[in-house]
Design a protein around this nucleic acid. Structure first.
Length: 439
RNA sequence: GGCCCCAUCGUCUAUCGGCUAGGACACAAGCUUUUCAUGCUUGGUAGAGGAGUUCGACUCUCCUUGGGGCUGCCA
């Protein structure tokens, strides 16, 4: 590759980063890393209302969270205003643009600068993902590039910035294909080389409409808050429109970089499937280094206002919990029964497992039997229940114990849980449940 | 309305003319000696419709239908 590849991610900061947008960033990043090119960031901050320092901070945070490191300093569109206007002057001087009085949709009348599209011929380009694209020039109207208040419009700012940043490949959303025909003419009129284009399909909802916040979490921050891992989100978004050509799905960053091929990106829109993302998240949690999961467990426990007592076997809990965890944010609820006596009793579980005839006696009987065991460990305790069940299934004992001791119908292995709880607390909870929750 | 793009299981997809159409998620059943999970096994469900090209079409061409995008002094 003789030409040095330069791609860019050019979002306008609005305080939230949409997954469709960040997927474009991911594809840009991967393409740059795969080809050894540069991944540039351009902040299109011309909407001064929304492009606050906070909004920009959110954007940078999201990129950092996902590991989308960029080369060179961020390029701020507002700082290139002078160049935009210089280019507009050039276009006017060369006859490619003209001023005219117009009335906007809002009814404001003023002088705007229009770009003059050719009136005949065909504008065409080879899109790396969509293939040959062509459109008759006559089908595209002249369009405004400077507002009546003198500020440059997206089309001119975007193109001039791409020229100034030396962008060679523009990888962006599908919704820009029509703009591309316009932008190509601007590049030509300015005497600049025309970059290569790759248009990415959109992420859509179950109805096939563009995926929006109405369809669920739509912004990167929401996924983070829900406990999704950045690498899982990254991996899932990548797979939404690209695959390595074999059956591999969970890929490391280096595999992604090595295998990514822009030409194999799909043309069709992909429906967002939260279920598969959840599965992917579980896969990533399972593969998480143990030390990291342990750290997360400790941090999240403390952050939820609980303390881990001295001598508590965290390692054993990690053994039990890591493979079962789908969301790191589920950790506090999953560990609460170990670090607090003030855990919620799931009403449905109580109804189903405790509020039944006979359960009270069963629990009290267990208290007695458990009191008698010498060694308080999972194997011994399981032995006790196994003996009681006489090979007919431990369900009748196991479920009430679980609910009585943890308040929930699901969790880590029951006897492992009792071992972690310790004799005193287990007996106490069984007694309490028998007395207060059973008929 | 005009212009552009798209079309394989419910979903993400493999297939670059030979297919008994493969994998993953989800779902169902079973196993892991009878808990919650994990893991494993098994199962069902797909090429929008119609012409054409070809020995042969999911793969190529055309039409129809359906879906999406654009058509701003938004980006």
């Amino acid at each position: 590759m003789s030409e040095k590849i330069r791609v860019r991610f050019a979002p306008s900061p609005t305080g939230k980063v949409h997954i469709g947008n960040i997927r474009a960033a991911i594809y840009n990043w991967l393409y740059a890393r795969h080809t050894g090119g540069k991944f540039l960031l351009r902040v299109e901050d011309t909407d001064l209302e929304r492009s606050t320092p906070e909004a920009i901070e959110v954007l940078l945070e999201c990129m950092k969270w996902l590991g989308l490191d960029y080369d060179e300093d961020p390029f701020y569109q507002t700082r290139n205003l002078k160049r935009h206007m210089e280019c507009v002057e050039k276009l006017i001087a060369s006859g490619h643009a003209y001023k005219v009085e117009r009335t906007s949709r809002e009814g404001k009348t003023g002088i705007v600068t229009m770009f003059r599209m050719p009136k005949e011929g065909v504008i065409e380009f080879d899109d790396i993902v969509k293939g040959r694209m062509a459109k008759k020039a006559e089908d595209i109207q002249d369009f405004a590039i400077v507002r009546s208040d003198g500020s440059p419009i997206f089309h001119i700012a975007n193109v001039v910035d791409d020229i100034d940043q030396g962008v060679t490949h523009i990888i962006r959303g599908d919704d820009h294909v029509e703009n591309t025909f316009k932008h190509i003419e601007i590049f030509k009129a300015l005497g600049a080389p025309i970059p290569k284009y790759a248009h990415l399909s959109m992420i859509v909802n179950q109805q096939g409409k563009p995926y929006s916040k109405r369809d669920g979490a739509a912004f990167v921050g929401e996924f983070r808050d829900q406990g999704f891992l950045p690498d899982a989100l990254f991996n899932y978004l990548l797979l939404l429109g690209w695959n390595p050509g074999d059956d591999r799905e969970v890929l490391s960053k280096s595999e992604m970089v090595e295998l990514f091929d822009l030409a194999k990106v799909h043309v069709t829109a992909a429906k967002f499937d939260i279920k598969k993302l959840q599965w992917m998240n579980g896969e990533y949690i399972k593969r998480m280094p143990r030390a990291e999961f342990t750290r997360e467990l400790k941090e999240r426990t403390v952050a939820a206002g609980m303390a881990i007592p001295e001598g508590f076997d965290v390692s054993y809990l990690v053994d039990q919990l890591q493979i079962r965890t789908k969301f790191l944010s589920d950790i506090p609820a999953a560990v609460k029964c170990f670090f607090s006596d003030d855990f919620e009793m799931d009403a449905k579980a109580v109804e189903k497992r405790l509020a039944k005839e006979g359960v009270k006696d069963l629990l009290l009987d267990l208290v007695e039997r458990f009191s008698a065991v010498e060694a308080w460990d999972a194997v011994t305790l399981e032995g006790v229940v196994k003996e009681l069940s006489q090979g007919n299934g431990m369900g009748p004992w196991v479920h009430p114990i679980r609910v009585a001791c943890s308040g929930r119908g699901e969790g880590i292995g029951l006897f492992e849980m009792l071992q972690l709880l310790g004799r005193e607390r287990t007996l106490e909870r069984l007694r309490k449940a028998a007395q207060t929750l059973c008929p």
